[in-house]
Design a protein around this nucleic acid. Structure first.
Lengths: 162, 162
DNA sequence: ACAATTGGTCCTAGATTGCAACCAAATTGC
DNA sequence: GCAATTTGGTTGCAATCTAGGACCAATTGT
């Protein structure tokens, strides 16, 4: 079946997330929604994507519970749900990475708290203490298939040896 | 020009980031690489994607400096660069979101520190204090185009009024 | 009442994806 | 040392997805 991948079979939460917001536009639509964009035409103007694609993505994001469609049937508003708002850390982590590693110019948008203080750069922590990448380990979880277990064990073994 | 969007013109760091890792496979390839996967055939087996797509994505990720291609020309190893490792927070934030909001089963992979303690869930903070979504503000940055400024001002105005 | 705006749908051309077949170099088995 | 297998791709084809524009019904504005 050519055309598009079905990531939902990969038994991986990243794949599950990407199956919902993994295409080129969905995350940008959500970012606009989190910033306060609500109307079809505003998304269209802000992102400059084709109408049919925008309609399709909005429908899908509503189906997946990331956005809520409300107001009149013919002129709806799209508002982020709690599930959508919960993506803010991932989105902002991506933005910060883009600021540091991709953009040539200074950041166009800054995220602050309600008193205008720039938010901290997002880090990995355990028990409130920051972790470097080298301290991370990937362990099989409760939902790990045998095949996943073997896979992780092989990688960990290699890490220790070579 | 149908086919694919050029996100690089959006003057947005999220778009810049997505222009590099915004397709269905790139982030999953990077996730594997961060977990220790190194060889073409290992990525292929782990993700189950087509060979030509994998070859294309690996080449692009190397071009963009996220992965480093090393070892023999004919049997290279792909290792995450510092730029690639810097994506770990965004990736893990996405994984945590998938664990909570998407997966039906228990998490297949758990990220811990070097002593096996589960890492904290990733949150937004300012001055070390956790922020709720409602406390966030999106302000124009130094690199904001006039059009971006007007856009953000309109959204902020609306937030205050209606 | 009338024109403009909004929120779509439909159609078409071109780009992208997945799959299978193929291939050369490197590694393995004996 | 030599054949067989594995590795890391490339190429071609068919199906799918994308961008863009034309079109349309229902609100909204005047």
């Amino acid at each position: 079946m050519p055309g598009k991948a079905d990531l939902s079979k990969l038994n991986c939460s990243v794949a599950g997330a990407l199956n919902i917001v993994g295409d080129w536009w969905s995350l940008l639509i959500l970012r606009d929604a989190l910033m306060g964009v609500r109307r079809f035409s505003e998304f269209k103007q802000s992102l400059g994507l084709a109408r049919n694609i925008l309609a399709d993505r909005l429908r899908r994001l509503v189906e997946d519970g990331v956005l809520i469609r409300e107001g009149s049937e013919r002129r709806p508003l799209y508002r982020p749900s709690e599930k959508g708002r919960a993506l803010a850390p991932a989105l902002i982590a991506l933005m910060q990475w883009g600021d540091v590693w991709v953009s040539k110019s200074r950041p166009p948008v800054v995220v602050t708290d309600h008193e205008g203080r720039k938010i901290d750069s997002i880090t990995l922590q355990a028990n409130g203490r920051a972790l470097s990448f080298d301290e991370l380990r990937f362990e099989p979880g409760i939902g790990a298939a045998p095949h996943t277990r073997a896979f992780l064990a092989k990688l960990a073994r290699r890490e220790r040896n070579g």
